[in-house]
């Protein structure tokens, strides 16, 4: 592509990005509006700026311990991410590289399991977790989350798109499977693994039904359940909901930026960056 073409594309992409982000900007601005002004399309920029919503959300420590929920969310999401990445990369390696017998069929079952509507699992899972005495503990949110098929499917497909030649060479050099996995395959798939990490982290962070149904004590909630305290079945406390959601999403954005830097660096270190 010519230099001019690339510059044009760059401009275009910035425009698209602006379109995508503007609703988020609107949300941010609206969280600083007093409740009487929130739904008014005539004043996108607040006429009156207020910190009321944030003060309320952060100040109600007794029943809405925001800091505690933040901690819970971080703990659950990082644990889930760690376990999913570890288990999924091992499974994908086993299927695509070690070519374990039955691997292909197993992948088929895993992908098929993704087609069963998740709502169906809720009651059996609740009863299982209850027998395990895991309800109202973080284990209920962490362990079952590692069973999802998304990560295995994704990493399998990524590994399939990377030529096997490099790994074969390493094997011929006398490297063990474990060595190949740790020193060759993982670095080769670093962008994919980091991407999976982000997805898992976000998915776990935003999970609503799980914490709601499996947690009984307010202090064991995660952030999304906290946000929902300002939405009733009949109306929404817009200002408070948006303020909580801004507060709940900011850590996620920070995590994403950290991951993104890591993707870029890992690509630089494996020499894949163009």
């Amino acid at each position: 592509m010519t230099k001019l073409g690339r510059n044009l594309v760059t401009g275009l992409m910035f425009l698209v990005a602006f379109l995508f982000v503007s609703p988020v900007g609107l949300m941010l601005v609206t969280s600083f509006k007093p409740e009487s002004e929130v739904l008014n399309p005539e004043s996108v920029i607040p006429r009156v700026w207020t910190l009321f919503n944030y003060r309320h959300v952060l100040g109600w420590a007794e029943e809405a311990p925001f800091g505690r929920w933040l901690l819970n969310s971080f703990f659950v999401s990082s644990s889930v991410t760690l376990l999913v990445v570890a288990l999924a990369s091992m499974a994908a390696f086993g299927i695509t590289r070690v070519k374990a017998p039955g691997g292909g069929a197993f992948l088929g079952v895993v992908v098929a399991s993704m087609m069963v509507p998740g709502q169906l699992f809720l009651v059996p899972l609740y009863l299982m977790l209850s027998r395990l005495h895991w309800l109202d503990t973080p284990a209920a949110l962490i362990v079952p989350a590692t069973a999802g098929g998304f990560g295995v499917f994704m990493l399998t497909q990524f590994m399939r798109s990377v030529p096997e030649a490099i790994e074969e060479a390493a094997l011929l050099d006398g490297c063990s499977w474990l060595g190949v996995f740790l020193h060759v395959s993982l670095p080769l798939c670093a962008p994919a693994i980091a991407t999976l990490g982000i997805f898992t982290f976000i998915g776990s962070w935003n999970d609503f039904l799980g914490p709601l149904v499996f947690m009984d004590s307010v202090r064991n909630y995660t952030l999304p359940v906290g946000i929902a305290l300002y939405q009733t079945s009949y109306y929404t406390e817009y200002g408070l909901t948006l303020a909580t959601s801004v507060l709940a999403t900011t850590p996620l954005i920070l995590v994403f930026m950290a991951y993104q830097r890591q993707i870029v660096e890992s690509m630089a270190s494996t020499g894949l960056k163009d």
Partner: peptide, 14 residues
């Protein structure tokens, strides 16, 4: 930061 190092970091945070 290598993937291994970042996984280790995540583990530490956890």
């Amino acid at each position: 930061m290598s993937p291994k190092a970042s996984l280790a970091l995540l583990f530490g945070v956890c």
